[in-house]
């Protein structure tokens, strides 16, 4: 899952940085000539720049390869199109269910103020989102890989009942859909 990876990368990176600080601090009461430290430090700084660039540039390339923005134009012909309109403080959604594995294109708009269209799975894990903005249509493409009752939460503060602005979206297995 994306969130676990992000949490792991962040905590390990911060812990590494903290270790460097502690290492330097524990040696701060000793004395050495500053010029020698600077010469060595500048070499390490250059290496750090090179290392960050060497890691960051490929990472940028990989993460930018699959952006969500043009996904709707590339969606397959069988995609389910769902119109979602945000109001203070409820959602109007044209369809209430989709099938597992089906491409769903959410066309998200707002009738009044900015809202956020956040899709949560049954364990209340955020799986995708886009903003809902008056005057604009944001197309969010998502393929649900698990059946269940998904919650749509508002993720942009929109007034006093913002936290109560919810809707449900059912994702069915093929058997469920056939038997319905």
């Amino acid at each position: 899952m994306m969130q676990e990876t992000v949490w792991l990368i962040t905590t390990v990176s911060i812990a590494t940085l903290a270790a460097v600080f502690v290492w330097v601090i524990t040696r701060s009461r000793q004395r050495a000539e500053y010029k020698t430290i600077q010469q060595s430090g500048y070499r390490w700084r250059k290496r750090l720049f090179v290392a960050l660039a060497a890691a960051g540039i490929p990472l940028m390339g990989v993460t930018l390869m699959k952006m969500p923005y043009a996904a709707a134009t590339n969606a397959d012909a069988q995609a389910l199109h769902v119109d979602a309109m945000g109001y203070q403080w409820y959602w109007e959604i044209s369809e209430s269910e989709a099938q597992v594995g089906q491409t769903v294109v959410f066309r998200v708009e707002s009738a009044d103020v900015n809202h956020g269209f956040g899709i949560y799975d049954e364990s209340m894990r955020l799986v995708a989102q886009t903003q809902a903005m008056p005057g604009y249509t944001n197309e969010l493409v998502h393929v649900f890989d698990q059946p269940g009752t998904y919650q749509i939460l508002c993720l942009e503060y929109c007034g006093v009942a913002h936290h109560q602005m919810k809707a449900e979206f059912q994702v069915l297995t093929n058997q469920e859909e056939g038997g319905a």
Binding site: M2, Q3, V6, I9, T10, S13, I14, L17, A18, F21, T63, L64, K66, M67, P68, G116, G118, L126, V127, A128, Q129, L155, E156
Partner: peptide, 27 residues
């Protein structure tokens, strides 16, 4: 340290694919 360390989760969140599941959360 706070400045340097705080930038790490900020940069992670600025990755578009990560932002899809982190934006406007308590992250």
């Amino acid at each position: 340290f706070g400045w340097a360390a705080g930038v790490i989760p900020a940069i992670v969140d600025a990755t578009i694919r990560v932002n899809m599941v982190m934006h406007n959360t308590l992250w």
